[in-house]
Design a protein around this nucleic acid. Structure first.
Lengths: 251, 251
DNA sequence: CTATTACTAGAACGTTGGTCTAGTAATCGC
DNA sequence: GCGATTACTAGACCAACGTTCTAGTAATAG
């Protein structure tokens, strides 16, 4: 099984070479030099830890990812992990960036049609995150600064720039799109987090109906049928891209 | 100190009366009957627990909210909490809905201008969530089904309905707006979660510059100066509302 | 006056993230 | 070659956590 999902062979990055001793070792794994001068196919490495952490998270969820379990699955002692990693939070950082690497990066696009490639990219991003539902809660926990996350962000910026979004609004547009994806994933994954999703959805539906005096509009119009999530995401994204298109200097 | 923040007196709801024995007690606190038949000003209650949990979270953060600490601040034993609440997760559910109650609900709006009130509402929602930065990671963890959350959701739906959003797209539009807010809050709060925000931001800025070969666009155009967050949120929201406006049947 | 209900709480269990200390095997300077 | 250093591993241990078990108390009901 080892790394459950189908795993597209998307481009990955993992630079963290040298990096002139940024001695204000601020928070994140990505900004710290790593403890490695690969001598001879080290049996344990950040890469193996990251990959196995993703596998554990996929199959057992956040709660059951413990340093001991992770170490056991890697065939090593629990304390050994702390040589490669400072805290459990580091492991989560690594795991999160690992899955960002699964989002395929289209080639830098031709300027004629930016909308479809952009839309496709955002859909794929969302899909990958939903394939690893544990990622959603983590997104609000740490800045996304891993190499894979930054590469995706770079693509987003470059695409919007090519699409004619004026420079003063570039960051805001990228930020907005990415926030829309993240929010959608969070909302969607929230229903998955608590055990049996359809049972909860039924209960929630009942709840709305039972209090339809308080929630008339929702009781009448909101039906969280199963396919709705994807269509709603697309629909909302289109509102957004419409607005973006209208204000981007057409080129 | 008791409940740190300024606390606007927004409308609050807390119905969970009777509720015909929904014996498939699915996941959430909100769908279960509570353990209370108020006899005589019970010294401990869900309300007091929720309020104090918010206070602890505000001042000390998620990590340091423990059942023992919470109980101590309530002047009671740790185990006592478990009479009122099933798990710590329940406490978080209660705390989260508690702060949703801080978002002021405008009066059902006149049909002439829906855009400003809607925009103001979403801004306020975001502001409240950012005032309690611990809320962001929780949003991707559980469906929002507390009475206060549902009331806000109801307002959103009602507003969009009044704005002329056609019924088949109503849920999608509401979903999209709410996801945009949630995503923005998550991204924003992520930087706040790890200790010193400005230090991390500087380090990240350096990181981008140091690898400007990999991230040319971001290195050149992205500056996460301090005020940018608010303006970016507004800007992105306007893209969205533009698109929405264009497709909503004008009325 | 007894039974029941609403609620409180100490002690304890298993598990967790993390540290301390001690070790081993390979490489490097000489 | 050889001692010192570096890269890495790991057992024992710690404080703290969420939660359960069991035992209680105070008030109401009959």
């Amino acid at each position: 099984m080892e790394n459950g999902t189908g795993q597209s062979q998307a481009t990955r990055q993992s630079h963290d070479s040298a990096q002139p001793s940024n001695s204000e070792a601020a928070g994140s794994v990505w900004l710290r030099p790593r403890q490695v001068t690969p001598r001879q196919a080290a049996p344990l490495s950040r890469e193996r830890i990251a990959a196995e952490a993703v596998a554990v998270l996929d199959s057992d969820g956040t709660q059951r990812l413990t340093m001991r379990r992770l170490a056991e699955r890697l065939g090593t002692g629990a304390t050994t992990l702390y040589w490669h990693v400072d805290t459990k939070d580091d492991v989560l950082d690594l795991a999160l960036d690992e899955i960002f690497g699964e989002v395929p990066l289209p080639a830098p696009l031709a300027s004629d049609g930016w909308r479809e490639p952009l839309s496709a990219f955002l859909h794929q991003w969302r899909t990958v995150l939903l394939q690893h539902p544990w990622s959603a809660p983590l997104l609000g926990t740490r800045p996304l600064m891993g190499p894979n996350a930054l590469a995706r962000s770079e693509f987003l910026h470059a695409t919007l720039l090519a699409a004619g979004v004026p420079q003063p609004h570039l960051a805001a547009a990228a930020y907005a799109l990415s926030n829309y994806v993240i929010g959608s994933v969070a909302t969607r994954a929230a229903w998955h987090a608590r055990g049996d999703e359809s049972a909860i959805r039924r209960a929630a539906q009942n709840h709305l109906q039972a209090h339809h005096a308080s929630y008339p509009v929702q009781a009448e119009h909101v039906t969280m049928a199963d396919g709705d999530w994807d269509a709603s995401f697309t629909h909302g994204l289109n509102y957004f891209l419409d607005g973006l298109h209208a204000r981007a200097s057409p080129q």
